[in-house]
């Protein structure tokens, strides 16, 4: 029934998927489109990416990550398995908790990566905060590697998130 307990569980699952698409969609845009395209863009046109598109994409990327974590934790709590999943199903003898737990931990690591590594380093690399040329170059490389790490983790993370009905 509308607005009963199972509806709210569904509602937060919907919000979780919406914000997850916002987050991982931008992550894949950075890794599959923007980073590989930068060397092909003439220098005088690069500011269109670094000053306009990248800062806007980073805004929706990092807030998408935050919203995905918040709605995901609420969803796990409403579903009654937050503790079991965070323990990776140890002591429960249930593969569902192990699978969703792996997904949750990878998602949490990825979100921490976004807010504590990628975003601060991108601010330096894009010149949104003060940094020397050397610092900018180094920050850009660290941000790229952290972003690539998240792209790598997104593959098993999404398997874990969507496979629980199979287990």
């Amino acid at each position: 029934m509308l607005f009963d307990y199972s509806w709210w569980t569904f509602f937060f699952r919907w919000l979780h998927v919406l914000s997850g698409v916002m987050w991982i969609g931008h992550l894949w845009y950075f890794n599959f489109v923007q980073i590989p395209s930068m060397p092909k863009i003439p220098d005088e046109q690069k500011p269109a990416i670094t000053k306009v598109i990248a800062p806007a994409a980073l805004f929706w990327f990092r807030h998408g990550a935050l919203a995905t974590v918040i709605t995901g934790l609420i969803l796990a709590y409403l579903s009654g398995y937050s503790g079991n999943a965070l323990k990776l199903g140890f002591g429960d003898d249930n593969r569902k908790f192990t699978a969703i737990g792996f997904g949750m931990w990878m998602g949490l690591i990825m979100a921490a990566n976004v807010w504590f590594i990628i975003w601060p380093k991108q601010q330096q690399a894009l010149g949104l905060v003060e940094a020397t040329a050397d610092e900018k170059k180094r920050a850009g490389r660290i941000a790229m590697l952290a972003s690539r790490t998240n792209t790598m983790l997104s593959i098993p993370m999404l398997y874990a998130m969507t496979s629980t009905h199979f287990y």
Partner: peptide, 30 residues
């Protein structure tokens, strides 16, 4: 030495490999 994550193809391959490792781990744990 160049980090394998600098290549997008290697990143995706590592992600698929990590998925296989995770699936095995899920079955090993239970």
């Amino acid at each position: 030495m160049k980090n394998p994550l600098e290549s997008l193809g290697k990143t995706v391959s590592l992600g698929i490999l990590l998925t296989v490792v995770m699936v095995v781990l899920i079955h090993v744990i239970h």
